[in-house]
Design a protein around this nucleic acid. Structure first.
Lengths: 356, 356
DNA sequence: TACAAATTTGCATACGTATGCACAATGCCA
DNA sequence: TGGCATTGTGCATACGTATGCAAATTTGTA
């Protein structure tokens, strides 16, 4: 209140003096598993309380070579999927007594500054999500000996761990669903073209359609951005041979596409046009949209991510691990329904064709 | 790749040896403004590059007593307003060479663990946003001599800095707008009852309506949560004397209210019911909603927040500063329009009654 | 009670960097 | 060229904690 100067901050030595023990004793009191008698421990805790002492995590990190900080790199949070991920990560990391250093709001171009910061803080691990600089960054970090997990993304070289869902199978499932729904012409609104999720979803979708005899798929690119998705939708919906069904590479864009279709083109969904998305993010559940979508098991993805990191940190072994989880095709009202394959579970309708 | 063991990490001494200078010289090379000749500086930089050296921020913090870390506490990210804030904060802090330690995903109850972590990491400043544990936490932090800024919130004791918008005036502006629109009965769907934003918006709204001769306002509570807002909307819309106009304390809830009104009650907006929100968050701009809403100047709020922190950190003076910014009533399609007071600016329609 | 085993304690040192101080090197001006 | 002001450099130390080691204490057992 009164003092303008920097608070000195009470140290373990001060607590030691006050309690009449050595600095070591204080340290051991706050180090789980250290050898300390209950008696002195109580003395120390009492003095610590009086003086308002808290261990200095910075100094501790210097000695232990562990910062207990995990860096999370997310280029943008526009897509609600990522705030959800962030919140869940916060929970999961806190449970393991780790902290979350967030890197966001920077342009994708300049990866080096970010990498520099990461290295300077000696973070114990790195989670890369929703960023296109994965490849370069992950390489560098791996070289530096820091555990890295790609979240919802992979790279060609699989030297770095990743957690994903079966995007290719998801794309195929959507193709099957739309074909079963009786659609005859198909479109795809793509995400970032160099992202693994987009590549896999598109491949599964296109292959699935081809297998059913539909070789032509109209494709536009939305770059996982709302604005680009709107533009892509306008282009696609202006065509004379406008497709009857469109798979949009994620829900974030699907919302934009539905808005454009309904309010700019007066198209009825699903009567005139079927839309399927990916992620099962918040707005997909809102009644205005009710998007039929492939879900991604957020909690399990986060769990796996933290698992991998904790393993690698504990063992010191950095060997790449790839966890691939399953999603479900959640059926709502944005696409025409097939006659078969719909089952009820947990109050939701999901699509599970017989063959699967 | 090969080594499973912990990377040793190259130190300034190693660089010094390699470059044939003292450790001090290396330190000075990486300390802006330090006394170092261009010649040795180049030598050091060369060696640093060869060895892959990066200053250890942990060790540096220990010496300088500055972590260059700002803690951001956000209880939940469900409301898109806060991810937007987060992204902007990331940008602004990075520009000042600060980093963002995020605390989120915890239950509001247990404030102490969070506080402990904050203190242990010796963060240079704290930003409290969207959390109800502001009061307790901010007190403790202030006592500890750490700069704190409440973002979009205030407390009774104004010992701690804050950045807000004129919520009370905003509420009043909305009342004026709805009255000018010819509405005769009014509702309010509240946010968290103990939050300052909710209190102020409600007060301004109710007082504004009273001044126009409307003493009765139907009030339900949505707690800034989507689920609660849906329930509140159902209750309010089920009344025989259902209000013609509803001010919903933020856009996040307004979206839910519109969904319920349209799809569960078949109510047309704005023909049968006018809705006004607050924040001007993403979905408010989506054509499915087009919410008329009081905007909060996100960028300027973030700028101010970072400004205050930087000032207090630089000066060491922690004297509370309160920045109060202006928003605008952005007019879209969710509420009936008044005859006068609408003006065009930057391609948007805003409401500015003559008197103001 | 005595002695060995087990537990607790303090001492000293290390972690990687920044910085005050004294000294060396360089630049400047006449 | 000499002397002085200026700039650059190295030495030593400090930041707050963890931990190996040896000494001191407690505990258990016969």
């Amino acid at each position: 209140m009164d003092s303008g100067v920097k608070k000195p901050g009470v140290t373990s030595s001060q607590v030691a003096d006050h309690a009449g023990v050595s600095q070591s004793a204080v340290s051991r009191t706050f180090t789980p598993g250290a050898s300390i008698s209950p008696k002195t421990r109580q003395k120390v805790l009492a003095s610590a309380k009086v003086l308002g002492y808290r261990p200095n995590a910075i100094a501790r990190s210097l000695i232990t070579n562990r910062s207990r900080i995990i860096a999370v790199v997310m280029a943008y949070l526009e897509n609600l999927f990522y705030p959800d991920v962030l919140e869940e990560l916060g929970r999961a990391l806190a449970a393991e007594n780790y902290h979350l250093l967030l890197f966001t709001g920077f342009m994708d171009r300049d990866s080096d500054p970010v990498f520099d910061q990461l290295m300077q803080y000696r973070v114990d691990g790195i989670i890369l999500a929703s960023t296109s600089l994965s490849s370069e960054l992950s390489e560098e970090c791996a070289t530096a000996g820091i555990p890295v997990v790609l979240f919802n993304r992979t790279t060609e070289r699989d030297a770095v761990s990743s957690v994903t869902t079966r995007n290719k199978e998801g794309g195929k499932r959507i193709a099957d669903f739309l074909v079963a729904g009786g659609h005859k012409s198909f479109g795809y609104i793509a995400g970032l073209e160099n992202s693994s999720t987009n590549r896999d979803r598109q491949q599964g979708y296109v292959e699935g359609l081809a297998a059913a005899g539909f070789a032509d798929v109209v494709i536009e690119t939305g770059n996982y951005s709302r604005l680009d998705a709107e533009a892509a939708a306008r282009t696609m919906l202006s065509r004379k041979d406008r497709p009857e069904a469109i798979f949009v590479a994620n829900d974030h864009m699907a919302v934009a596409v539905m808005d454009v279709a309904r309010h700019e083109f007066g198209i009825r969904i699903p009567e005139d046009l079927s839309i399927v998305g990916y992620d099962d993010v918040g707005p997909a559940r809102w009644t205005s949209y009710g998007i039929t979508t492939m879900s991604q098991p957020l909690k399990r993805m986060v769990e796996s991510t933290v698992d991998i990191l904790m393993d690698q940190i504990a063992s010191g072994e950095i060997e790449a691990e790839h966890r691939i989880l399953n999603g479900d095709l959640i059926v709502r009202s944005s696409a025409r329904l097939p006659q078969t394959g719909l089952i009820e579970r947990d109050g939701q309708t999901i699509y599970r064709p017989r063959e699967a």
